[in-house]
């Protein structure tokens, strides 16, 4: 009886989320819609962004090379030319909105709607412009190989934990140039300081830690940002992201891990947040106050990056390739050999 009630509550939560997405979709204005070009079987990328012009060329090329067929993007009031740049890209459909990022659950509502509208029947990838997917064999097999295989295994979702990358020395020391691989600068990461807990209600794992916990949340670890992500999903209209891409409904989609000792296949979202661009970004976002929990994360960066400058430590690990991440246990190829 209790189980049924819990099920009903989850269903209600999911439907509320979907209704909310529909309502919030009124805030979106289509700027250029090329969704007619989407072919059957295309992998679609969904992104919300604001003033990211400098990052876009590398971002788009990275995912094009992996085999993403179309990009559906929501531009939240950029004023640096992002909008115009994206309009000129042949595989991008663009929506713009001046509405509040915070009020739309940090973009989740907008993207839930676009996924509902265009994503059903496709594998969808929800990533920010500073997140780069690394999956097993990504150097030799396109993303389609992965999604084909996941489908053959009956899997609907694929997890990729967020891995914060950082440079050695002050973040401002090496300026990022447009088109450059950000991981030429932010080449380092924390290999083994992650905390995992299981969220009983939605069955997802709650992962925190990494450099952000180490450098900014040493005193209040519970406030460290969540790193668990499920960005790649074989989308259906009944699905909805609950908060960022950390959790999904129906909750079965969150069960991306094996709980009897085995390893499921998983990837990593390499996070190129800590570049010189973050200082300006932190200032701007602090002023706008549009981020999670009163933008306290950005407040911490603003303080932390000024005090310490360097996120690097003696036991930081330098990135080589996906095999390294798999040996370190940050991701797994499972039985995809």
């Amino acid at each position: 009886m209790k189980a049924i009630r819990a099920q009903l509550r989850l269903r209600a939560q999911r439907q509320t989320k979907l209704m909310r997405a529909l309502r919030k979709s009124l805030e979106l204005k289509s700027r250029v819609n090329r969704t007619a070009d989407i072919r059957q079987g295309d992998i679609l990328a969904f992104t919300t962004l604001r003033n990211e012009l400098v990052r876009l060329p590398y971002f788009l090329d990275y995912y094009r090379a992996q085999g993403v067929g179309h990009f559906l993007m929501v531009d939240n009031a950029s004023d640096d030319g992002t909008t115009e740049y994206l309009e000129g890209q042949k595989d991008v459909s663009l929506w713009v909105t001046g509405a509040s990022y915070k009020q739309s659950c940090f973009g989740v509502d907008w993207l839930n709607h676009l996924q509902w509208r265009y994503g059903a029947g496709h594998w969808t990838l929800v990533v920010d412009v500073d997140e780069f997917l690394v999956y097993p064999f990504c150097d030799t097999r396109p993303l389609h190989a992965l999604t084909d295989w996941l489908e053959s295994q009956g899997r609907k979702s694929f997890s990729a934990m967020l891995l914060d990358m950082y440079p050695k020395g002050p973040v401002t020391a090496q300026p990022y140039c447009s088109g450059q691989n950000p991981f030429e600068i932010a080449r380092w990461f924390d290999a083994c300081n992650y905390s995992l807990k299981r969220n009983g209600k939605l069955q997802n794992l709650w992962i925190q830690g990494g450099v952000r916990a180490r450098a900014f949340h040493g005193a209040r670890p519970e406030q460290a940002p969540a790193l668990n992500q499920t960005p790649l999903v074989d989308w259906a209209r009944k699905y909805a992201y609950v908060s960022s891409t950390h959790m999904l409904l129906p909750r079965g989609l969150n069960k991306v891990y094996d709980d009897s000792g085995g390893e499921q296949a998983s990837g990593v979202l390499m996070h190129a947040k800590f570049l010189d661009t973050i200082v300006a970004k932190a200032r701007e976002e602090l002023a706008r106050g549009q981020h999670y929990a009163g933008s306290r994360e950005y407040a911490a960066y603003d303080r932390g990056l000024q005090d310490q400058g360097d996120l690097w430590c003696d036991f930081s690990t330098e990135y080589i390739n996906w095999r390294q991440l798999e040996i370190l246990g940050l991701m797994s190829k499972g039985d995809w050999a």
Binding site: V256, G262, S332, G334
Partner: peptide
């Protein structure tokens, strides 16, 4: 590969092995 899927690496706690 099959063993990694079924037994995993002992002592590893991560996003897809818990």
């Amino acid at each position: 590969a099959a063993k990694q899927r079924s037994d995993g690496r002992a002592g590893l706690y991560m996003q897809s092995r818990f």
